[in-house]
Nucleic acid binder design. Sequence first.
DNA 1: GACCTGCTGCGGTGTG
Length: 847
Amino acid sequence: MAVRRTSHNPEARLWTRTEGESWREQWFATQNWTPLPHQRQTWEAIQKRENGLLELPTGSGKTYAVLFGFLPELGDGQRGLRLLYISPLKALARDVEQALHKPCVDLGLHLRVETRTGDTTAARRRQQKMQLPEILITTPESLALLLTQDNTASLFGSLRGIIIDEWHELLSSKRGSLLELSLSRVRGLCPDAQTWALSATLPNHEEAALAACGMGSQPLLITGLPPRTIRMQTLLPKGEDRLPGAGHLGLRMLPQVAEILDPAFSTLIFTNTRSQAERWHEGLLMIRPEWEDRLALHHGSLDPETREQVERGVKEGLIRFVVCTSSLDLGVDFPEVDRVMQIGSPKSISRLIQRAGRSAHAPGRDSELLLVATHNLELIEFAACRRALQAGFIEPRKPREQPLDVLIQHVVSCAMGGGFQADALYDEVRQAYGFRALEREDFDWVLRFVVEGGEVLKAYPQYCRVVLEDDTFIVKDRRIMQRHRQNIGTILSDSSMIVKLGRRTLGSIEEGFAARLHKGDRFLYAGRWMEVVSIADLTVFTRLSKKAGEGLIPSWFGQRLPWSPLLSPFMREVVEELARTEDLSEDPDLSALDAVRQTQKRISAWPEAREILAEITTSREGQHFFLFPFEGQSVHESLGMLLVYRMSRVLAATFSLASNDYGLEIVCSIPVEWKHDLISGLLSPENMYQDLESALNHTELARRKFRGIARVAGLVHQNLPGRRHSQRQLQSSSGLLFDVLRRFDPGNLLVRQAELEVMEEQFNCEGLHQVLLKLQNTPLHFEHTRTFSPLAFPLYMERVSAQISSEQLADRIERIKNSWKQSSGKSVARSSRSSPKRPSTGLGDEH
DNA sequence: GACCTGCTGCGGTGTG
């Protein structure tokens, strides 16, 4: 985000309002910068008082386009908040503040530029409580907090412009919904404020623009710069080596990656999970111990300070390699990074573009991405990504439709921030895109809910948060206000414990993992082997372990990275190509798949175009039924549930289920005659919704979903003054609440929301329905196999992997080292025993 | 015979 400039020119300070609009050109001329066409276009639009969305790729200078569009408009000497800049990241907010100081000084604008995030000091916050600076850079959460101040109206009355940075990051989450509501409020207080949102490329940019600028605005879309070219390469195993048939760690490729890494080229190595990052970091260090100072680790559970150190190290060029997760996807700019690697499938085009974009982070330069497969079928995914990218496809980000939990939080905030009248707030809320279709009836339910807690909870004063005085809704109880402020926002944090080395905080680990730790246990964390000294107060105190290479590796809760539905057609295209084309040598990804295809053909068959492969295998476990629609995990999961539910109605047997991005497996304890008419009955789209609703152990899933909803709606609290809730308490109290509401308050809209979220988001009902319709016209190809085929094997592993342990990384490293014939003098890792279930063992089990 | 997975982001107040 650096402005290219020559020397400081004192004449630029002479700019005054009377010189008209030429100030920008003057300033840029003195700074040796020629404005790009889209920047000029933006400035003109801002002058014409238009709202808009800049949908341009990274590095196109869109931040400067909007900032410099607004700056001269602020030179009118008016006091109070003039420009609001919203960023999804605190780090980005800091960067923007710094970037703004100089142009303000150069232009002679006497404007205060300040950030306000959770890190802002108490003194600064007190000062901001009375009067905000002219330019405020903040996060959606801090903005929501500002709206709870009782002088909200006077704080925002003078606003001139709103800028939303990285809008695509917020757009499709509840964070985005909260921001939509907050901005409606701000616009209600100050209707003349213009909004400009900045976003990466999106297919649904009209919708994105409207969500940012609000209903009734007619946002201008500035777009059209061609995206940067991405050059993708796949790293294939050398010589005799083959990729594994399942598994996602990819450590078999470790030696080859280590070989490629060259300190002359700074490299980011992206992994899909935190524990994978820890393992790769550890593995690379074992092979190249001499890189200890130049190789770093970066993931979301590490302490922010440690992460900042790494980021600085990269910028200064001291750190040459970082093994990281999505924590480095966005935010800080790394112009110094030469190469980007991705271990495992990126699972979506937008993630692929995001990560590739970290290399050569500058306009006009190509991005390079080296893909490293972790198992052989992943090569199909790589090929699908390549095709989708070439076709110019990218995932849309859809704004959430009417999340009432977010609305409830917002309504309480508004009641605190000076109060509101029902009609006025209803109109205002419907200016937010996500709430444009909100029924008055539902809005009134929300009002009743915050006033009296609904049918069931009205006996408890803590749920009666808002009171109606005359015709104004306000909050009077100071304790309720305090608790509300402490729990603002929509992000659910995992239950975690802090890890400390001496006095220093290293980061956090998942509570469940920590529960298994005892004094003296060793585990790999933040790239080092630690030994547990004691555990108290949700904190694990550690010291450095003397025995490196021994112990556990933490794993964190999380969701499996979602397979983008957009990629599914491309994946099937690749599968069809594999059926059609004999000679694959032309395609870099597919050529390595030939061996897999041969094995698959020998054991079973390779699915032909426009047919779906089904395999039946009998083992000691029972009868395995495999189906390979290649539709992505979420569809397969709900499809599997539907099938099992429908089967259980006709057959008394025990079923177990596994699914991945390629297909699903149903294991049945007794033999089933899988015939075409049975299958087509099972796959019927008729009554899908009803069956699915009965099938998904609905209550349990909805209960789990309700935890987040209750948190956002302020029914249970993540933070209370003076003490931290452990997640278990939170879980049980929200679970209890859910049961009570379901039983005694059947019309409760939050319960309904939990059920809807499960059906729509988790089970992707719409997608499933489409697939069922398609399956009606697609013939099944049955194969009875004597052993698991390469397509079936990963599904089988999915279920049983927890019980199996075998090859050791330590052995692998040993082999690697021998093959390289370069002994490092460092002792090779030895093994230790641990529970076969997660948390998984470290670099090896017993020999 | 194949094997050991699960991202990211934010946020508070009081008193001398």
